[in-house]
Simulated assay, not measured.
Amino acid sequence: MPELALPPDARNLADAVVRAVRDGVAAGELVPGTTYSVYQLADLLGVSRSPAREGLLRLAEAGLVEIHRNRGFRVLPPSVHDIEEIIGIRLALEPGAARRAAEHGTDEQHATIRSALDAMADAAARGDDARFWPADRLLHDLLLRASGRPRTAAIVERLRTTTALLGPPTTASGRTLLEIHAEHEPVVAAVLARDGAGAEAAMRAHLEATGGLLVSNLNGGRQP
């Protein structure tokens, strides 16, 4: 039986179900292609069937799950085309945001960005996936918000939940936690130095590397 948990800070039960399913896939608890019962999901999360169904309908509308009447639902992993599109969107948004965060972010915002990177480093050294990925998501979110783009931050977070359906990021991209942390270091170093061009280039390199590895692994190790 998969182990799932409702996030305590969700706005309502349907939102909590959406996040619990996404987190369950990212953690390897829900396996793409396997059919699960809606009743099983409701029981696992301790909610009634109504919010469970509503959450699944939202995921289905986003193309993240497929619902089979009277049978249940199954997770749909993103395709190569999906990943290429997602990385393309992120490349259009995040490198420029890193530049703005470097040039216009406040000292307080820069301090929180530094703290997020430190949390990633500590988790990577301990091999602690459960702490590493929230710190990773927080770092990207802080960079976007320091650029003055809160709507962009929300868009990127939704895109990241789709790529999370590929499974644990270390498995999906073929990199270790230490390697992924190392890709973020030049981004943060440039931001703290208020080097806009450097921050933009480092973020672009990180996203291009991530996208290339995800697509390569989906292609069975063949480069696109």
Rank of each mutant, 00 (worst) to 15 (best):
A102F: 07
V25Q: 07
A97T: 04
T170I: 10
G28N: 08
L64S: 11
Q40K: 14
L178F: 01
I155K: 07
R126P: 05
R49N: 13
V25D: 04
Y36H: 12
A27E: 14
R100T: 12
R11Q: 13
G33T: 05
E103F: 03
L144G: 00
V188T: 09
L56N: 08
P134W: 04
Y39K: 15
L213K: 03
E103T: 11
D136G: 04
S216L: 02
P2F: 12
D9N: 13
S48W: 00
I67R: 14
E103D: 02
L178R: 15
R145G: 02
G46F: 04
A190D: 03
V17Y: 05
T210G: 10
Q40H: 13
R160S: 14
Q40F: 14
G220I: 02
L144T: 04
H104D: 11
A201G: 05
R137E: 14
P150N: 03
L64Q: 15
L13H: 10
V31H: 10
D141P: 00
P186W: 02
Q223C: 08
D107N: 05
A164H: 13
E85F: 08
R99N: 02
T34G: 00
D122W: 05
P224Y: 10
A199N: 05
P32D: 02
A20T: 04
G221D: 02
E54H: 07
A154V: 13
G72D: 10
R114L: 09
P51D: 06
R151Q: 13
V18T: 12
V17S: 06
A102W: 04
R69F: 12
G72L: 06
D15N: 09
P8L: 13
G46M: 08
P169W: 11
E200I: 07
G148T: 04
S37M: 04
A16D: 05
L76Y: 02
R49Q: 15
R22Y: 04
G198H: 06
P7H: 11
R22F: 02
G167I: 06
L56C: 08
A125D: 13
T170A: 02
V31A: 10
A16R: 03
D136K: 01
V18H: 02
A190R: 03
I67K: 11
D195A: 09
G174Q: 01
L13M: 08
L213N: 09
L139Q: 09
V47Q: 08
L144S: 05
G24A: 09
L64H: 11
A146I: 11
H110G: 15
L213Y: 11
Q223L: 13
L30V: 10
G212V: 00
G174R: 01
G24M: 05
T171P: 00
R19G: 10
R58P: 00
L56Y: 08
R151Y: 07
